[in-house]
Nucleic acid binder design. Structure first.
Length: 302
DNA sequence: GCATGTCAAGTTGTG
DNA sequence: CACAACTTGACATGC
């Protein structure tokens, strides 16, 4: 049994999350900055409520919240905390409503902090900023009841073993709220499931198994083996596993299989996934909810 | 209006 | 060595 998930945004549904750049904010006095940000955060909170209604209506069971939900939250100049915002009370109220809705509709929420979050960087400043960004996600996750903050292990810096050791150091600096939600995902160029599984076992971190990344960046494990080992990291924590799927834009014969296609080719989903579970499968496709709905139609669960 | 360039941030592989 | 790719497009500006 598979629960399908949508990532961040919609292509056809009339829901547009808003944002603002640090550059634009920098032209405004602080009070006006906070007003602009507050307005955007309030609208994004309302958008999230609408998102839950929409995905529930379409039979989608998970939703990834975009990282710029509170735009520029940790920016060195434009950054802020919720209490700074004129609409803080309304925003909080809506986010608590989101949490109740999520529970009532049984929708899993997650985050995927962007590529600038590198917990294993040799540069201390990068680690410090990465931790701030993860803690921002954790605060938001606590408010809305999101289970997962999923990241990649980071750079290799010519020595993957040493770099994974540095990951442990960064991980140790996170709050309990962040550690509780942090998950690791195999990436498409560097860290394979085999690389990450020992670390996941040692730190009790669930492994989000991205089958597309595994095909782009394989190791000695078969898809079957990697699936089974990844699932174990979740059941150990008594959580439903998460996996990711996407299809290559130019097909597997094209030059670079890494870019994502508009839709999922059902053939890219391992057949045996029908018989395991339950687990959540985030669909990473450019056509967003249309791709998820199409996949659910073309790849019916038993 | 609509087209186009820009947007905080890291790391890697490619042309 | 510049640039795309990564989960990603929306905002800002200038015509």
């Amino acid at each position: 049994m598979i629960r399908f998930g949508l990532c961040c945004i919609f292509i056809e549904e009339p829901i547009k999350f808003r944002t603002i750049t640090a550059k634009t904010l920098s032209t405004l006095p602080r009070q006006q900055q906070l007003e602009r940000i507050s307005d955007i955060c309030l609208k994004n909170a309302e958008n999230l409520v609408e998102s839950l209604h929409s995905v529930a209506r379409m039979g989608i069971g998970a939703f990834r919240i975009l990282s710029s939900f509170f735009p520029r939250y940790t920016h060195p100049e434009a950054g802020y905390v919720l209490e700074d915002l004129p609409d803080a009370k309304s925003i909080l109220k809506i986010l608590k409503h989101v949490n109740r809705l999520r529970g009532g509709k049984n929708i899993r929420l997650s985050f995927h902090p962007d590529q600038f979050v590198v917990l294993n960087s040799p540069n201390e400043e990068v680690v410090r900023k990465s931790i701030a960004e993860i803690e921002y996600h954790a605060a938001l996750a606590t408010l809305v009841g999101a289970e997962v903050i999923n990241i990649h292990a980071g750079g290799g810096y010519g020595d993957k073993a040493a770099s994974l050791k540095r990951f442990e150091r960064g991980y140790a600096l996170l709050s309990a709220a962040a550690q509780q939600r942090l998950t690791l995902e195999n990436d498409d160029v560097l860290y394979t499931p085999s690389d990450l599984l020992p670390l996941c076992r040692d730190l009790r971190i669930p492994l989000v198994y991205d089958v597309h990344h595994h095909r782009c960046n394989p190791d000695s494990l078969s898809v079957e083996e990697a699936t089974a080992k990844a699932m174990e990291t979740w059941t150990l924590r008594k959580q439903e596993p998460y996996s990711h799927v996407s299809s290559p834009k130019q097909g597997w014969t094209g030059r670079d299989p890494k870019p994502h296609a508009d839709y999922i080719n059902p053939a890219d989903i391992p057949d045996f996934w029908r018989d395991i579970g339950p687990f959540t499968l985030d669909v990473e496709a450019k056509h967003k909810e249309k791709a998820v709905v199409k996949l659910m139609d073309e790849w019916p669960i038993r």
